[in-house]
């Protein structure tokens, strides 16, 4: 226990070291989460839009020439 406590004290600079590391982790994780959220919602909207569009498109061209990439990541 004492050794853990001493480690967490960081030689008396805990008040600077842990906030610095915590803030770095927060920013990195937040950027990742927000970007993933953007990507997922965008892909969902795109799938919906393409689903409503497909019937019209199918009349004009055969389905296997569909140029859009497959969005299953």
């Amino acid at each position: 226990m004492d050794r853990i406590y001493e480690y967490l004290q960081m030689g008396g600079h805990a008040a600077f070291i842990w906030p610095a590391l915590g803030l770095t982790a927060t920013v990195l994780i937040l950027m990742l989460v927000l970007s993933l959220h953007d990507l997922r919602t965008g892909e969902a909207v795109l799938r919906r839009l393409e689903a409503t569009r497909t019937p019209r498109r199918a009349r004009r061209s055969p389905p296997d020439s569909h140029p859009e990439p497959n969005y299953e990541a």
Binding site: L36, L39, G42, E43, L46, R53
Partner: peptide, 17 residues
């Protein structure tokens, strides 16, 4: 890479709309 993909997706949505 993730963000570029998200950006490409939103451009496609815009073009479709």
């Amino acid at each position: 890479l993730l963000r570029i993909r998200a950006e490409l997706t939103s451009r496609k949505i815009r073009a479709l709309q």
